[in-house]
Design a protein around this nucleic acid. Structure first.
Lengths: 350, 350
DNA sequence: TTGAAAGCGATACCAA
DNA sequence: TTGGTATCGCTTTCAA
């Protein structure tokens, strides 16, 4: 049988209550007693029984992090940002928390299922990252689930998706519209006129907002007419960028630039262009939306809209821990900031 | 207060024991009773209390997956393979397990710490993925931790690292030596004679085995003399590939090929070369070790040694679940398989 | 086939 | 500053 708190108590010659107090450090204990307890813990190699303590305290030290695609470095960075934030020992609360990374794969059902699983584990908090599905019935189901989670004592934080109306869960969001607009404006400023756009999957907040920003820029430049012909939709992965770029070249051989809804897609597009013998950035410029270390040096011509993702993850982590006040109106917007990296070539016919 | 098993029992007009039996499905219950219980569960929106059940049953349905770098798609793929193997999450049945992805960042201390946290959660099993540190004292500490985990009832599986001598934890491994050797032999077969090598971090099993394979190929070709001059060490990330490639070009301007210890490093190398105006694959060929969807179309000239990663994850998942017999001697080797993708150009002076 | 009741291991309240 | 002890919600014999 495993060593229990009672064993430690006997060894240290104190009561179970005292051991618990020492371990949780949230109650005054005499120095000498304290040392004896710690020594007993050491000698017996005692490891707290998480479930038992979660049962008694009615909360665990698990933090759920829902991601759309765990193989995408974007989410990897978010997850580790949250983990490093919650992993540090905190003054007011005992015990480092453990992040449970749940990969929904973008599936709404799995999103709901994971939330139930996390509720079952009595997760201390839950961070939902990445774009949300724009679907009324899913939205309703989601709100129901999150409401029950909150009622069960969990803290809910949205990170990278807009706040849920009719709820007041704190949200850390990006200004996707403005960012995408800046991105396209930048290309326009360089003289590009035939710009393809690789959009994300249907009915996602990020997809829509970024596309809106892109179109707004085009329209302002009097190029709104071509917009829909030069937009290809796909998922947020590399293959979408690959096939999307080929499709764009097909539709418009005179293309001089491609803007992608995220960096992973942009990399796929670069691959397709290279395979076709198209030079980057001399024949076509490719730009992606995120700003991952991942993408930084992969495509030297990449123009990125800087979104402090890591920082956002930390914010979400703090909110999940309850260390920050929820921001004004429950929403914290991480502003976009344009950053041009390497050379972004002018269009061929400029 | 949250809905409990007792509430469901009252509602269904049965005892708590019966509800438990219905929910766990591991005991005969009359059909009618069963239905009444399930209906009550539905009506009350009952969610099992994981900690309570883990306490009573002395085991949880958490499976820990330790990874070296969660932002590396390699580990993302491993993690999701394990997750999908241990069970498509289903809310109403306690069967499916939940993967807890722990990012060690390659730090030995964090590795140990996470293992303690997982033991505390009474994890049903633990999968350690990726190369292991070659350090006696860490190895001893690790064996101690894993032994205690096992004693506490957890199943331990190694995936992508060699078996631990003096223990009998099942292991799923890759033939890193043979794979790396094949990779370099392939380059040699194409006529390359000045081949740079981007090795991984010090004291890692994968680093050493792959380097040995590479050197064996060079030595067999009578090129062992240049090996150490043309080897640069770094971490397993993109920037290591970036700076490593620049360093290699510096040391040997006449370089015609670069082999990298993994795909992420290879991509970094490609970036550096492009930035320097070196053509890939015309001036220099770059090859990476893994075979990730991630890398597949990123570098068309990439020569890869195919390692069935997903399959390895599945194996690890099965072993973690106890669904497979532990393989002979506790070790399952996933053989390497050479696969050439795209064109790998001949050396300039060939 | 079902119910009653004894734990599982830690927490926190109430005394001392 | 400490100890005793009643929970917490579920699982699992043991009886019925």
């Amino acid at each position: 049988m495993a060593v229990t708190l009672a064993d430690v108590a006997v060894r240290a010659g104190v009561s179970a209550a005292t051991v618990s107090r020492v371990l949780n450090g949230n109650y005054p204990v005499a120095g000498a007693t304290r040392n004896r307890v710690l020594q007993a813990v050491e000698e017996l190699e005692y490891v707290v029984n998480g479930p038992a303590s979660a049962l008694a305290a009615a909360t665990s030290d698990l933090v759920g992090v829902l991601v759309n695609d765990i193989a995408d470095p974007f989410f990897g960075i978010m997850a580790s940002a949250v983990q490093s934030e919650i992993g540090e020992p905190v003054a007011d609360r005992p015990g480092p928390k453990l992040a449970v990374v749940c990969n929904t794969g973008g599936s709404p059902e799995r999103e709901l299922t994971f939330l139930t699983l996390l509720q079952r584990q009595r997760a201390a908090s839950v961070v939902l990252t990445g774009g949300a599905l724009e679907d009324q019935s899913h939205r309703a189901a989601l709100i129901g689930r999150l409401g029950r989670l909150e009622a069960a004592g969990a803290r809910v934080v949205l990170c990278g998706r807009p706040p849920l109306t009719d709820t007041d869960f704190p949200a850390v969001t990006f200004d996707n519209r403005a960012g995408a607009r800046q991105l396209t404006e930048h290309l326009l400023g360089l003289g590009h006129r035939r710009i393809g756009y690789l959009a994300g999957p249907q009915a996602r907040t990020t997809t829509r907002h970024r596309l809106e920003g892109h179109r707004a820029a085009l329209t302002a430049a009097g190029l709104g007419g071509d917009a829909s012909r030069l937009t290809v939709r796909g998922s947020y992965d590399r293959s979408a960028g690959y096939y999307g770029a080929l499709e764009l070249l097909d539709r418009e051989p005179g293309l001089t630039a491609i803007a992608a809804a995220n960096d992973t897609v942009a990399l796929g597009a670069c691959a397709a262009l290279r395979e076709r013998g198209v030079r980057i950035p001399e024949d076509v410029s490719v730009t992606g939306f995120d700003d991952l270390p991942f993408a930084v040096d992969a495509t030297p011509a990449l123009t990125t809209v800087r979104l402090p993702l890591h920082e956002a993850g930390v914010h979400a982590g703090r909110l999940a821990l309850g260390r920050d006040e929820a921001p004004e109106g429950g929403v914290l917007v991480c502003p976009g900031e344009l950053r041009v990296r390497g050379s972004t070539a002018p269009p061929r016919d400029a």
